[in-house]
Simulated scan of single mutants.
Amino acid sequence: MTSLPQTSSTLLIRTDFSDQAAWQALRTAVTAPNEDEFLADLHFVDDPAYGDLTPEQIVALAPEHDRLLILADKTALTAPDMPLLAVLRHREYDDGGEGEEEGADRPAHEELRVIAEELWSIENNISLANMDWEEFVDAADEDGVFRGF
C-alpha cells in the first residue's frame, strides 16, 4: 500500500465504497460554506486502495506532518448528519496535556466524530492552532459526536 498524498490541505480519506451517492452527498456537504462563509480546506482521497482501512492503518500511511486526518467511513456514509471520523495524530515531540509529562503513555492518535456540517470548525481551528482538540471533545454530545458549539 502506498502512502497518502502530501498536500497542504487536510486529507479526507474515503474508506467505505459501498454507496457512491452517499459519498457524493457527503462531498457536497463538506464543501458547502457555513453561514459565515467558513469552509474546510480539504484534499479528497477517493481511492479503493484505502477501502476498509482502520484509523491506525490510515495514521501509519499519512505523511509525517499531517496532524489531523478525516475519515469517511461506513458510519459517515450511512448515519444521519454524516458523522465523519476526525483523527488527531500525536507526535513523539508533542507536549503532554495539562498535568502530563512529555512522553507520557498515551495513544498514537485520538478520534472524534464530527457531523459534516461542522467539519469546517474542527479543520480550521485545529489546522491553524486556534483551539485545542480537547475543546471539541468537551463540546461533543453524549454520543461522542461534535455537532457545533
Rank of each mutant, 00 (worst) to 15 (best):
M1C: 04
M1K: 11
T2K: 14
T7I: 00
S8Y: 00
T10R: 01
I13L: 08
R14P: 00
T15N: 03
T15K: 04
D16V: 07
S18H: 10
S18E: 05
A21G: 03
A25Q: 14
A25N: 13
A25T: 13
L26Q: 03
R27T: 12
A29F: 01
V30D: 05
V30W: 02
P33I: 11
N34T: 06
N34W: 02
A40T: 03
L42K: 02
H43S: 12
F44T: 03
A49C: 08
Y50Q: 15
G51Y: 00
G51L: 06
T54W: 05
T54H: 06
E56N: 13
Q57D: 09
I58C: 07
V59T: 11
A60H: 05
L61E: 02
A62L: 04
P63H: 07
E64L: 14
L69P: 00
L69S: 03
D73Y: 10
T75M: 00
A79F: 10
L84H: 09
L84Q: 10
L85Y: 05
G96M: 05
G97C: 04
E101H: 13
E102P: 03
G103W: 07
A104Q: 11
D105E: 12
R106N: 05
A108Q: 03
H109L: 00
E110M: 13
L112Q: 10
I115M: 00
A116T: 10
L119P: 10
L119S: 06
W120E: 02
N124F: 06
A129K: 08
N130Y: 07
M131G: 01
W133M: 09
E135N: 13
A139F: 01
A139P: 02
A139Y: 06
V145F: 05
F146C: 09
R147G: 06
R147I: 07
G148P: 08
G148W: 01
